[in-house]
Simulated scan of single mutants.
Amino acid sequence: MKKPALLVALSALLTLSGCSREFVESMYDVDYTTTNRFANNLAPQPGQLTKDSAALDQLMNSFSGQVERYWGENDALVASKRQYVKYTDGYQSRAHVDFERGVVIVETVAKTDPTQHLKSAITTTLLTPENPAGVDLYSDSAIELGDKPFLYGQILDNEKQPIEWSWRANRFADHLIATQLKKRAERFHQVYYVEIPMVADHADKRGYKYAHIVRDASRRYGISEDLIYAIIKTESSFNPYAVSHANAYGLMQVVPATAGADVFKLVKKRSGEPSPMYLFDPANNIDTGTAYFYLLRHRYLKAVKDPLSLHYSMISAYNGGTGGVLKTFHHDRNQAMTNLNRLQPNQVYWALTHKHPKAEARRYLQKVTNYQKAFNQGKL
């Protein structure tokens, strides 16, 4: 299979920029919501990799320029951790899956026969496969259909049936256009679109797909299943297509140059770092993310004495780094560990959720522990 342009481009950017989540977040309080700025960090054209900064800037701006050409600056969207966005049809149509709101929006700005363009976009969206390797999110390239649809069971048609085959997808598309077609006027164009609600337990249905992978990783590394599920829910809402402008990929949002490289070197005993294509595979991603928790427990934070304090520290470190955890307690690493071990677990939790140097990391620990509780109560 030919490598998607996204994966080739991102690999180059990782090499050339040396950028990591820890570096970005040490400079900024990162907001991972959808942003046009993310598109400026991607180079969608394969075979054009160069260290010439001007050429690289041109490549990185190519995708966002194409999007804005058809949709305008104010209506441009790109994929993020919890937002799947894919352009097709020469950038005239797009699918937008909002995992937080539980809605799929399919739109077109085609000026000629827009309903036919919209129908094609709807059927393609409904049949988009589970495997992210066949989908280039940062071009208008066609999607390779054939595998079981990613949204299977997360959307039901007008007969309350899941959609797996083209005949049902086409029939549902006709129904949506006949009964749910909407229009809105943007500055330079008319948008035709439909909104498709996802089932109430869509996150659970995505999560069930990975149950055997999570179970295997839990046993392999001695990390609890509820923690793995809570991390995936927090990081990507079980979106295997998840990407961030901090160079993190997949379900557990693994950064290749940091956590990924550590796992390769210290756990897998292999050189280099995982590629984006490697991390877009759910099994590889969950294995790598869980292996990194193993390193946090047995290497980077092994001096934390209380098991619950260690648990909180591991979660915080997964997001903000081990250094961020220690800086919460003192600027000197040895003194920080001494101070941490003097505290009760509830005090460690309070410190990490109130005094951690990064606001995003403070919120992160709260989210993960809440999701763990929900999982153990059967509500995740």
Rank of each mutant, 00 (worst) to 15 (best):
N376F: 02
L181K: 04
G250Q: 08
D204P: 00
R220D: 14
I286E: 10
V191L: 12
V67K: 15
I315D: 06
L301M: 10
F264D: 14
A317Q: 04
A336G: 13
K160H: 12
A121S: 07
T124S: 06
K111N: 05
A79P: 03
D52W: 10
H175V: 03
W350T: 09
P197N: 11
K268E: 15
A283L: 05
A217G: 02
T290G: 13
A283V: 06
V191D: 11
Q154M: 14
Y292E: 14
N40S: 13
Q253V: 07
E273N: 04
Q366Y: 01
Q377H: 02
G323M: 12
T258I: 11
N170S: 11
A95C: 06
Y349I: 05
H189R: 15
Y249A: 03
Q58F: 04
Y192T: 01
A169P: 04
D98H: 02
G134P: 00
Y241P: 01
L6Q: 12
R270W: 00
S313M: 15
K305H: 04
N341P: 06
F238V: 01
A248R: 10
E100R: 00
A55N: 12
Q92L: 11
E360F: 00
N239K: 01
K355V: 01
G47M: 09
K269W: 06
K305S: 10
L156S: 06
E25R: 09
N376L: 15
Y221C: 09
A291L: 04
N158E: 15
Y364V: 05
E159P: 00
L308I: 15
Y192S: 12
H212T: 13
A261Q: 11
Q366K: 15
Y28S: 03
R187F: 06
K2G: 00
V255G: 03
N247S: 09
L10S: 02
Y87N: 02
A55T: 04
E164V: 03
A317S: 13
D281K: 10
P345C: 10
R37L: 15
A336M: 05
P132T: 03
F38E: 08
R37D: 09
V243A: 02
T234G: 05
D75W: 14
A374Y: 06
H96W: 01
H356Q: 07
Y294E: 13
N74W: 07
R297T: 05
A110E: 06
S20R: 12
L127V: 01
D287Q: 10
Y371S: 07
N341W: 11
Y70P: 00
